[in-house]
Design a protein around this nucleic acid. Structure first.
Lengths: 224, 224
DNA sequence: GCAAAATACGATCGACTGTTTTTTTCCGGG
DNA sequence: CCCGGAAAAAAACAGTCGATCGTATTTTGC
């Protein structure tokens, strides 16, 4: 036998993609064998090579396409460009949480399988991620300029926010205690609190925050 | 030839452990071959089996021992048990950042290689992590009771804080822009801001926060 | 200095790996 | 109806994998 009845290229390609996503997310790229993947799709292992040149290209495509989709979706969520920084940060957080919570497997792979990418492929993905981070940094910077945000260090705040938001994928399960909407609003509240900074009780709202735990004195102590 | 001159069990064991840590952190558990590990240590592959029964046990020991050390170190950092919640949270954050920033490889493995653990071993590690999380939750709960902390959901705040703190290991490099101490203080400030919650400008400091972005109405909308 | 334990070698096992090639069959457009 | 290209099977390749074994040598305790 050879070509099976009812076979269709695009349909098989999609099946390979989604099966590969699940297998890599569950067992990891290195631990997923192509025989396992083929069995999941219902074809022979050799036939996979009608759809990619090698295993590495398959992983890279999976990651690259997700990152491209992510960028496009974020840009769509952030138009119109106007709005004050609080509103833009709100839109960013609500988008990020909603998008990631729907695609936990892709997100997990994009973080945990970077080490499985060959150097050239890794460089491409790292650049895309840096662009994404910058979009958040720009919002924080704008809010810092108008005074609605008070973070010690914009770069640190960017990384902290992305880490806590992306971490949702590690524990959120549909049907859990909280709905997706609830999780989104709770995390939005925490991000806004973080961005607005420390305002200890008893301080007039327009007064600058006390020096306690603010950096600038210690920040460059160990800079290279 | 057989036993080599100058060979010592404990010394080899430590060499295997540290080489394995680096290899797994770099390439992943599945991608690390025992031949690679043995070559790094400078012994033959079969000799590794004098130090563990199989590859899985090696990974499990690596993770389990780290978690045990982590717990012991945290407990030591949190004594005496007294102190107000802000001080205890400060101690927790400063400990967590300092401890994790010194052991990025262990931390990375403990998060990313959980999927490589066999079910029984995984259950042990998950339990240990839950205990660790609970210690942070208890601090947040105490602060919530006295009113110094105002988070919408203690469980979410626990996960958010741990995610943003542990994320430091993913990007911190010695000799970077910020010293370890600076990173620690900046993240402490962000955690405190997050825990103290949203206090919009114009609100009296003792008045309860406005309902905007607070949960309770929406939290159980999709609960199972 | 001698016996027992510790340590490592070196060869080997069968199973599995990613990949290539050839062959067979089916699908879609003329 | 039929033919070219698409799709999959089938078989094979050369390596590598984790694991086991008997054996040789060194270290250690007495």
């Amino acid at each position: 036998m050879a070509r099976t009845a009812g076979s269709s290229g695009p349909r098989t390609e999609e099946a390979i993609r989604s099966a590969g996503l699940a297998l890599i997310a569950t067992h990891g790229y290195a631990a997923m064998s192509l025989r396992q993947l083929a069995a999941e799709v219902g074809i022979q292992q050799g036939s996979l090579y009608n759809y990619f040149r090698n295993k590495q290209e398959f992983l890279f495509d999976l990651i690259r396409i997700h990152m491209q989709d992510l960028h496009a979706a974020l840009d769509a969520a952030l138009v119109p460009e106007g709005g004050d920084p609080v509103e833009r940060l709100t839109r960013f957080v609500e988008f990020h949480v909603a998008y990631h919570i729907e695609r936990p497997q892709q997100v997990f792979i994009c973080y945990s399988e970077l080490r499985s990418l060959e150097p050239d492929n890794l460089a491409v993905v790292v650049d895309m991620r840096r662009d994404y981070e910058r979009k958040l940094s720009d919002i924080l910077g704008a809010g810092q300029a108008t005074g609605v945000f008070r973070v010690d260090d914009i770069r640190m705040a960017t990384l902290a926010i992305l880490a806590m938001l992306s971490g949702i994928c590690n524990w959120y399960r549909p049907g859990g205690r909280l709905s997706k909407d609830a999780v989104r609003e709770i995390f939005l509240g925490m991000v806004l609190a973080l961005a607005r900074g420390e305002v200890p009780a008893g301080t007039a709202e327009e007064a600058p925050p006390p020096a306690l735990h603010r950096r600038n004195d210690v920040a460059r102590a160990g800079a290279a």
